[in-house]
Write a protein that binds this DNA or RNA. Structure first.
Lengths: 234, 234
DNA sequence: CCGGATGGATGAGTCGCACTCATCGGCAGA
DNA sequence: TCTGCCGATGAGTGCGACTCATCCATCCGG
């Protein structure tokens, strides 16, 4: 140490660990992964670069830990909130809405997740991947329950619906976030739920439905008329 | 130049440009953007790093040019292929299928597109972005035509459906590609078209309604035939 | 009160890689 | 044969991730 320099501040291991994690989150969010320098993260805490590497093996591990911590935050009260809603469609909409809210609140963390982590070669098998699976598992369960309740068709593969929902949100939100417009998450959630549940195809028009119903009514009337009791009574 | 060294091979500007582009595409695909060294791209052509920078301002510009070139390849015969198919649903499925094929054939280029380019701050306004818009515009037009033909509902926002399709394919294919499984693009295209068109909700499609009505009519006829009065009357 | 062990923190490195620039020298046109 | 053009060179420069030998405050047993 140089003469006249203050002695370094020594902190307990866990305290320093948490401090670095918080500082890293801020810097990564402000600058993005590539532009964030480990030296800057260290500087904000008044320590040198080497100190960070005492706690994290690499810049990437630091990023992973930041995102793991975020997932823990998010997973917190999912199950509880979901339990308060009845009906597969309403629960599906809730999951979509909550995800949209996360994207809106933490666009930079989402960006890190999508760009840096999920595209990595060894993402599969990582802790973040496991947490992402837990996160999306809620949706799979909602779909399964929906099928069990007869609300959803059984022949649609759940993994595909999950990917269309989360992938769709990602694309859609990205446009909005980069375009600097803010997300109307209520409306988007409604629309996504509408597309997923009802699809794009034009329904049988109400007229057809009426027609068929009237046909059925005439058939019923015919049967009634031909019943013995019917004639006997009259 | 050192004594005894061979004089450098001089090529016409366009020739060298194309060579660098091709070499860059290979190296980027093999190693990914970060791991690809400009020096290696140069080395494969037997030139030095500086030469590459005579033709491209930066490594990122090189990446952009590689992807622009790819988009040109893909856009080539889209319109023609699409014109050969009738029916909004069938055309939608064609677009999904073709996109899946692109992803399957060039997973590394997709990866570069998603990870490196689309997540960039200044992606919007770039040439690649414009080409991506042209690419996805085909789908928007199919949706619009579908609405005009009465095949699709008018109240569904097209941009959202576009994002759910392309985002969904991205997510779904990613799982498969990283999981080393290969894509059954025919089946996936069918399923995506099914979800998008018909949705998840259980319901009786119009065709089924007709069918059921006819069944009931036949049952009614059978009842009528077996009734004593019926026989008596005849 | 003392001396060694512990372990948090240091800071001066190394290394790899994107990017630059002064310079070279083959070749086409005068 | 001269000359200017321009493709190519290769020795830098700078930056940022990562390393390592070393320092020293604190704790603990004697």
């Amino acid at each position: 140490m140089k003469r006249g320099a203050k002695p370094p501040i020594r902190l307990a291991r866990e305290q320093r660990f948490g401090d670095i994690l918080r500082a890293a989150r801020k810097v990564f969010c402000e600058k993005g992964y590539d532009q964030a320098a480990v030296a800057e993260i260290a500087a904000r805490l008044g320590v040198v670069e080497g100190t960070v590497y005492k706690y994290f093996d690499s810049k990437r591990e630091l990023l992973h830990k930041v995102l793991e911590h975020w997932y823990e935050e998010m997973l917190g009260d999912y199950a509880r909130d979901l339990a308060a809603v009845v009906g597969a469609r309403a629960r599906l909409r809730l999951l979509v809405w909550r995800h949209l809210r996360s994207v809106r609140e933490h666009p930079q963390l989402c960006r890190l997740m999508f760009r840096e982590v999920r595209a990595e070669q060894d993402y599969r098998g990582s802790r973040v991947h496991a947490m992402n699976r837990r996160y999306t598992q809620f949706l799979i369960e909602v779909l399964r329950d929906g099928v069990a309740a007869g609300e959803f068709r059984a022949e649609i593969p759940h993994a595909l619906v999950r990917d269309m929902i989360y992938g769709g949100i990602e694309h859609h939100a990205w446009n909005h976030l980069c375009g600097r417009g803010d997300l109307d998450i209520d409306r988007i959630a409604d629309r996504i739920a509408a597309v997923v549940c009802d699809g794009l195809a034009a329904r049988a028009p109400a007229a057809d439905l009426h027609l068929e119903t009237e046909k059925l009514a005439r058939i019923a009337a015919r049967i009634e008329r031909s019943l013995p009791q019917h004639r006997a009574r009259k």
